[in-house]
């Protein structure tokens, strides 16, 4: 049995949790968590998750099983993850299309894959393996990147589509990542969106990012969502229809009321673009 996830959600983060769980704002329709922060963990995190589930559907977004690694999956971890996810009654789980570690060492950050046929084949095979192991639907998320790709690879959108189609997978479409990549590497984010098979999109992420003095944009999730990202979200939702949208805010977390204003803005865009949508 899964719980319905629709409308605008927010990432459940430690810095926000006390006020969020006390006020349970009605304009937040669901919450997203990173399972790595909760698996086999008691104390405040266990309490946060238990309280959150009383008021919201919860879905999950992984950080550590990135789909581009070369080493075999840790089977015991996938078993533990699968049990955790099924207990949460989630409709799908998501992971990043990136490199999260090498030789069983973890970067704890999302490093870019080369956009090559070889990397697409490896990532799609891993996605299938992981999906089978955890026993719940698995969506991949397009990642941000800051280093230029080699000359012999695919365009990023073509790379993402290649993995999606090889694995017959769902997509968590991060519009902020597309915007950041577009600005850093001088492509039109809307042309990227146009290449995505919209029937595969099950969820959208939006966030703010940091602009360095040299102009490089870093996907920090530590700033308000900029107007250009709101506009790209509107453009995307008009194509996807009413898929759930998550506001990611992981760093430099402001007072909850500031985030609720951003959530309201997202609802306005969501309703205008899709013609549907009520908060809880």
């Amino acid at each position: 049995m899964t719980r319905d996830v629709a409308g605008i959600g927010l990432g459940l983060r430690y810095d926000l949790a006390t006020e969020l769980l006390e006020r349970t704002p009605k304009n937040i329709a669901w919450l997203e968590i990173h399972p790595e922060n909760y698996i086999d963990r008691g104390g405040r995190y266990q309490e946060m998750l238990d309280l959150a589930r009383e008021d919201w559907p919860v879905i999950t977004h992984g950080l550590s099983s990135c789909l581009g690694a070369l080493e075999p999956f840790d089977a015991s971890y996938l078993k533990e993850l699968g049990t955790f996810l099924r207990d949460l009654e989630i409709p799908w789980h998501s992971e990043h299309l990136c490199l999260g570690g090498v030789d069983d060492r973890f970067f704890h950050d999302l490093l870019p894959l080369p956009f090559t046929e070889e990397a697409a084949a490896i990532a799609s095979q891993r996605l299938i393996e992981m999906r089978d192991a955890i026993g719940v639907p698995l969506a991949l998320e397009n990642a941000s990147y800051y280093a230029p790709q080699g000359p012999d690879g695919l365009a990023e959108a073509d790379f993402v589509v290649e993995v999606l189609e090889k694995a017959d997978a769902k997509l968590l479409l991060d519009v902020n990542n597309i915007y950041v990549n577009g600005r850093n590497f001088d492509f039109d984010p809307k042309l990227y969106i146009d290449k995505i098979p919209m029937e595969r999109v099950v969820q959208i992420h939006v966030a703010g990012h940091f602009v360095r003095d040299d102009g490089l944009r870093i996907d920090t999730h530590g700033e308000p969502v900029p107007d250009d990202v709101y506009e790209l979200l509107d453009y995307t939702l008009r194509k996807t229809g009413p898929v759930p949208v998550l506001l990611e805010r992981d760093n430099n977390v402001p007072p909850l009321d500031e985030l609720l204003s951003e959530i309201d803005e997202l609802w306005t865009i969501y309703r205008n673009a899709t013609g549907v949508g009520d908060a809880r």
């Binding site: 970067f107 950050d109 490093l111 800051y146 280093a147 230029p148 790709q149 080699g150 490089l216 870093i218």
Partner: peptide, 19 residues
């Protein structure tokens, strides 16, 4: 080999700063 000295040093900083 990776192709951009400056940008890969950004990654080095991001990874190490978080840890």
């Amino acid at each position: 080999l990776l192709g951009s000295r400056e940008r890969w040093l950004v990654y080095r900083d991001l990874v190490r700063n978080r840890l």
